[in-house]
């Protein structure tokens, strides 16, 4: 293992801003794994740290195959993590909206450019991503339909789902999109949580990546084969939306099977405790995303369900 600084810049009074990478093995640039890019992505940091620990063992045991180099970057944004801000401390810009970056541009453009310059030539790129809404996910590999996606390859992770979604204008500035443009096979890996640690899904993500790397001949790993991934289009999921705002009490967990008509959550009056709304499943399905904030706004998609084919009402 080689620990190295892949990007740094000085601040006025704070310690030097450093992005640290861990290299394993030697040879062609095979895999790059990126953890947190935003300051609240603690689970993404944790998952990377466990992956570094695991690769260290595997390297010692000679299980990283010859001719392959793996790079892990646990955090692209330690500055924001240390002061509990989601985006860049001074101008609140999101580094994951700055790729491929610009080395003569503004600060976060320079960080994106400096990091991307190091990570862009890898054959496979994996990012532990997070969602902007508060909630938990069933672990999955997410791909945007940018024209370069390889769904069959995504199934090699053996995660429960491979989710496909349409691109949006902002996607062109994300790491995942730019990796694809630079001909890296890129995958966004979602574990269950963001701001809190979920060991179970972090473990699943690590096993999934190792399963993938083993199938691609990069590591020697005989673990669990995982799931036969179900491919789901984001737009085909059934969203359950609030009509009212108030206290939010979820009655189900992510990954749980639910039946059409089942009550999934209650929205209650924050002063008087009366139930304002019962949120029911519109279809038979599996809870893919569940809001986990104790408050909810109105007009908010608080659940997303994977429809169980043949049984749904929709």
């Amino acid at each position: 293992m080689r620990k190295k600084t892949i990007y740094e810049c000085k601040a006025l009074y704070r310690d030097v801003f450093r992005v640290t990478g861990y290299e394993f093995g030697e040879g062609e640039k095979s895999v790059c794994v990126v953890g947190s890019i935003r300051g609240n992505e603690i689970q993404q940091l944790y998952t990377c740290s466990q992956f570094v620990k695991r690769l260290k063992q595997m390297e010692a045991e000679g299980k990283i195959k010859e001719g392959h180099q793996i790079l892990v970057v646990p955090s692209v944004n330690p500055y924001s993590m240390n002061i509990k801000k989601r985006f860049w401390p001074t101008d609140n810009t999101d580094i994951n909206r700055m790729f491929p970056g610009y080395d003569l541009g503004e600060t976060t453009q320079r960080i994106a450019a400096g990091v991307f310059d190091v990570i862009k030539d890898y054959k496979y790129g994996m990012q532990f991503a997070s969602f902007y809404m508060p909630g938990k996910f069933t672990p999955h590999v997410r791909m945007m339909k940018a024209g370069y996606e390889d769904v069959e390859m995504a199934k090699e992770f053996g995660m429960p789902y491979v989710v496909l979604r349409n691109t949006r204008p902002y996607d062109t500035t994300t790491l995942n999109y730019n990796w694809q443009i630079w001909e890296t096979k890129a995958f966004s890996i979602y574990t269950t949580s963001t701001a809190e640690i979920d060991k179970e899904s972090a473990g699943m993500a690590i096993r999934s990546i190792l399963t993938f790397l083993s199938k691609e001949g990069i590591v020697d790993y005989r673990g669990h084969d995982g799931y036969i991934s179900q491919v789901v289009e984001d737009t085909q999921m059934a969203a359950v939306r609030t009509k009212t705002a108030g206290l939010f009490e979820s009655l189900v967990k992510v990954g749980e099977e639910v039946e059409a008509g089942q009550i999934l959550a209650l929205v209650t009056d924050p002063y008087e405790g009366e139930v304002l709304e019962e949120l029911r499943a519109p279809v038979d399905g599996i809870v893919f995303f569940a809001h986990n904030d104790p408050l909810t706004y109105a007009s908010t998609a608080v659940f997303k369900l994977v429809v169980r084919e043949g049984k749904g009402l929709l």
Partner: peptide
């Protein structure tokens, strides 16, 4: 208009 959780 959108309802906010607590009395707003």
């Amino acid at each position: 208009t959108v309802g906010l959780p607590v009395d707003e």
